[in-house]
């Protein structure tokens, strides 16, 4: 495992491999999302209580899952960057952050759209909503730190420390908010005694979740490629600036 990670540490090899994989992942992501959206909008039945608004769930739930998946991925990559000094891990963490933040935002917005007809209000200060909002702030802080520190190596280390400190705090924040106030329904898919939702709704949800995950990975890998090229351009510019300065 560790050796495999180190084989990927060479950016050129990573670019070649991701160049091969990316088209496949994009096709999988778009195909699954297309199929999932068709199923959610046309084949899944309306809920007997919530009516058509239940279809928002097929976007909301995967987005909420991915908001946590993204932060976990970011923290894992940050730990790898700090411990093994893996040169691509900080690129991965940096690239995952905006995607994760976008899914967190999507989860908040779709939640608000669902909350208006169901709970009668766009926003309630309920435990789940609040902890997702705070997760969004953690993403923003992480991205802001990357944006303010100019030198990539230093920014990477500092951001990695922040991601790990945040990751330790996420469960604490979650449970403290839960303790504070709860209105949101409990988990209905990942439960010990089997999912509490009918297969006709479970399937579109799972397809959407898988498709969104592939979409997450596709965007993240594309961003990683762009980041590697950006760093190369920066290196070339620095090298040219120093030779030009040397000429005078």
């Amino acid at each position: 495992m560790v050796r495999n990670l180190h084989a990927l540490a060479n950016p050129t090899r990573f670019l070649r491999l991701s160049g091969l994989l990316l088209p496949v992942i994009w096709v999988l992501a778009l195909g699954l999302l297309g199929a999932g959206l068709y199923m959610s909008f046309f084949t899944a039945p309306p809920d007997y209580q919530q009516g058509e608004t239940v279809r928002i769930m097929f976007i909301h739930v995967p987005a909420a899952w991915l908001s946590l998946f993204g932060y976990t991925l970011m923290a894992g990559a940050s730990a790898t960057a700090l411990i093994f000094r893996h040169p691509l891990a900080d690129v991965a963490a940096k690239s995952a952050a905006p995607v994760g933040a976008a899914f967190t935002f999507l989860a908040l917005v779709t939640g608000a759209l669902w909350g208006k007809p169901m709970w009668g209000t766009w926003w309630v200060w309920d435990a789940r909503l609040t902890s997702v909002l705070i997760l969004f702030f953690l993403y923003l802080g992480y991205m802001a730190l990357w944006a303010t520190i100019e030198e990539p190596v230093r920014a990477a280390r500092a951001a990695a420390v922040l991601a790990l400190v945040g990751f330790v705090n996420v469960p604490i924040i979650h449970y403290s908010v839960e303790w504070w106030n709860t209105l949101h329904q409990g988990a209905s898919v990942l439960r010990l005694d089997g999912p509490a939702i009918h297969p006709s709704m479970l399937w579109p949800l799972l397809v959407m979740a898988l498709g969104s995950t592939f979409f997450f990975l596709a965007v993240m890998l594309t961003r990683m490629q762009a980041e590697i090229y950006r760093r190369r351009v920066r290196q070339l510019q620095l090298a040219r600036a120093s030779t030009e300065a040397g000429a005078f």
Binding site: F137, G141, V165, N169
Partner: peptide
């Protein structure tokens, strides 16, 4: 920036 980084971590203490 500090406020943005630190305030989310203060939530449990506040609650």
């Amino acid at each position: 920036l500090i406020s943005l980084l630190v305030l989310p971590l203060y939530v449990p203490t506040l609650i």
